[in-house]
Design a protein around this nucleic acid. Structure first.
Lengths: 271, 271
DNA sequence: ATCTGTGTTCAGAATAGATGAACAACTGCC
DNA sequence: GGCAGTTGTTCATCTATTCTGAACACAGAT
């Protein structure tokens, strides 16, 4: 493991929306390095475009990161496909959909489309991470990881509670994840934010591995009456993506649409 | 300059939309390193989330780049402001607007909004670079850099010609950039793509430095009849952004709107 | 089963980077 | 206006980190 590269990555991680500018001394203090060391890190990162120097010897994140991010997004197959499906979901339901991946044990929101009926969900923001155990997408993603990995994650990050409904016991989590894996979907019942519920389902690549999760969030009072339809919609939307990624879905009895046409996209519209 | 960090950045740059996946041997060959060296670079980058390992010992760009990119975008003031202005421009004109910055002598497209009248401009893509000397935004950005810097850029990258109209002589470039600096705007008359023209203007921060450029692109046959109005619109839109960034614009006589209300945003609509 | 291509590991050798002090440039404060 | 107290920058020394090449493990294809 190259120490210098690790330190460079640490430096990048210092730059957050809360503190977007850093000077040499600040970085040195934050990482416990001598000033000269911080200086060489910052100046090489800047010369490579990963940081930019701004007047006053301070630094900001550089545009190369934006370029690399764009290349990542453009070459991520599931994203392009999922976006289209999400647009249909939003158009039909008027609610908010999220697409997320699992990054060191946390949920990273990759895409978010807001519907016209939807209330602003402040907590979820594209590019932001959230603990995995409380959200619908998070539970889906965790459910399809080996249990030891989940255990390691919880050991490292705990089970922070965001609402009174958040799962805070490891046993409860184990049981729920097992359910989620067997059922093929997860609910979030006001676990990340009061009055907010969601249904979430896994997206699989051609090997069958779960690579992302899709969710449809609704206010609590609309969740319970529509739960069944919501569930079907999310599952079928996610399966639709998986199939386009080359995964062969053995459609279970109860989710199979009456008329077989997958082009009709019945899941995209509320009944 | 930390060699290891430079190499890590080189590795990241290998990942492009054309080749989004790399293995150890490929990277070693591409950078002229021993396999073991490439291996430690790749595995540290992956452990830091800047790359991700995919089955088969291959690597892709990692989601951390997406996160950092989002932080960059969220903390870039001119982007948020420019976006609103661009939306108005597109709504009023139905044409395509671009927002770009200068990154080592090249134009990087940061935002692009397509209008309903607009034809698809394939060459410009958000996150993509283009040589600066041929586009409207490029000429604006170059015009406000010291001439020695421009000279160094041309020496390094030459003056590649994309159409018969592209500037290919350094003298011609010097003259045109001087004009652009004095006038406060630039035209692209089919220099990047035949049948495509644009008008572009600089965006300045509170210190008066040019930090980005805004353009409105139109098909050639609509450019000449509307040139004057187009120019005014782009200049005022860009100034509008600059002012919101804290730059005090001494409005020249001929661009001043008849009625003083800047809220009316006369520039946003075609006459 | 063998061969060619992967990715991975490990040792020693050598160089790239860590370090702290001394310098320069800047700011704000008296 | 000059003087602290900042800041970022440079440099030479020394050590530890990284580079290297060969040997290993593993996969897929023939």
């Amino acid at each position: 493991m190259l120490q210098t590269v690790q330190r460079a990555a640490q430096v990048l991680r210092l730059f957050t929306p809360e503190q977007a500018e850093w000077g040499v001394t600040e970085v040195a203090a934050a990482l416990g390095l001598p000033k000269s060391g911080a200086h060489s890190l910052l100046s090489t990162l800047a010369s490579e475009g990963l940081l930019q120097r701004i007047p006053g010897g301070r630094y900001r994140l550089g545009w190369s990161l934006f370029e690399h991010s764009q290349t990542l997004l453009e070459t991520t197959d599931f994203l392009l496909i999922a976006r289209r499906v999400m647009e249909q979901l939003v158009a039909g339901w008027g609610e908010t959909t999220h697409l997320a991946v699992l990054i060191d044990g946390q949920v990273l929101y990759v895409e978010k489309l807001q519907g016209d009926r939807a209330l602003e969900i402040v907590l979820s923001r594209v590019g932001k991470r959230l603990p995995a155990h409380c959200s619908g997408v998070g539970k889906v993603l965790l459910a399809h990881r080996p249990w030891e990995e989940v255990l390691a994650i919880v050991k490292r990050q705990g089970l922070p509670s965001l609402t009174p409904n958040t799962i805070t016991s490891i046993d409860r989590l184990r049981i729920e994840l097992e359910e989620v894996r067997l059922q093929g979907f997860a609910y979030d019942q006001e676990e990340v934010m009061v009055d907010l519920c969601c249904a979430a389902a896994p997206i699989r690549d051609e090997t069958g591995e779960v690579i992302a999760a899709l969710s449809l969030s609704v206010p609590a009072y609309r969740f319970y009456p529509y739960r069944q339809r919501l569930t079907t919609a999310v599952i079928e939307a996610a399966q639709h993506v998986s199939m386009q990624l080359g995964y062969y879905v053995e459609t279970p009895e109860w989710t199979r649409p009456k008329r077989s046409g997958s082009r009709s996209a019945a899941w995209a519209t509320r009944a």
